[in-house]
Computed example of a mutant assay.
Amino acid sequence: MLKPKEETVMPLEERVSKIEGILEQMDKRLGSIETLYNKLDNKIEALSNKITTSNQWIVGLMLGTWITIMAAIFLK
């Protein structure tokens, strides 16, 4: 059986610390993605609220106009 060269074999502690470093970087990146997602979600919610308010005004104006026209026709 062939023995691996001592130079190419990394000690277990070194390998574990390297993996821990990689996991810390992944955690930071996922945290920034989560923050971005939350900001985007808040902006979408605000936009939805603005659209709802605008639609209520439009429907109110349309109903008011319709009622005025119908009253003008019936009271003529």
Rank of each mutant, 00 (worst) to 15 (best):
W57P: 00
E6H: 09
M10H: 12
Q56W: 02
L63Q: 06
D27Y: 09
Y37W: 03
V16Q: 10
L63P: 01
I73M: 11
S54T: 09
E7W: 03
I19D: 07
Q56Y: 07
T65L: 14
A46T: 13
K5D: 13
L63D: 07
I58L: 13
G64A: 11
F74N: 08
M1Y: 05
I19F: 04
T65E: 02
E13H: 01
L2A: 15
M26Y: 07
L30Y: 05
N38M: 09
L36D: 15
N42H: 05
A46I: 01
V16I: 10
D41E: 13
E6M: 07
A46F: 02
N42T: 09
I58T: 10
E34A: 14
P11Y: 07
I22A: 09
I67T: 05
D27R: 15
P4L: 08
I33F: 10
L36Q: 15
L12T: 06
S32M: 09
Q25I: 07
K5A: 13
I69C: 05
I58C: 02
V16D: 07
E34Q: 14
L75Q: 12
T52M: 03
L61Y: 08
E20K: 11
I69H: 03
W66M: 12
T65C: 12
E14A: 13
I73C: 07
V59D: 04
N38Y: 01
G64S: 10
N49P: 00
I19P: 00
S54F: 11
S54D: 12
S17Y: 03
M70A: 15
I69Y: 08
G21Y: 01
P11Q: 12
V9L: 06
S48T: 14
E24R: 15
L61G: 07
L75S: 15
V59F: 05
T52P: 00
E24L: 15
I44H: 04
E13C: 00
E7C: 01
L63M: 09
T52V: 08
I19C: 02
E6S: 14
V59E: 06
G60N: 12
I33T: 06
K28N: 04
I19W: 07
E24Q: 15
K39E: 11
Q56V: 10
E13S: 09
W57V: 11
T52W: 00
T35D: 13
K50F: 02
Q25E: 15
I33P: 01
N49C: 02
V59R: 10
L47D: 03
K18Y: 12
L30G: 06
P11C: 02
I58F: 06
D27E: 15
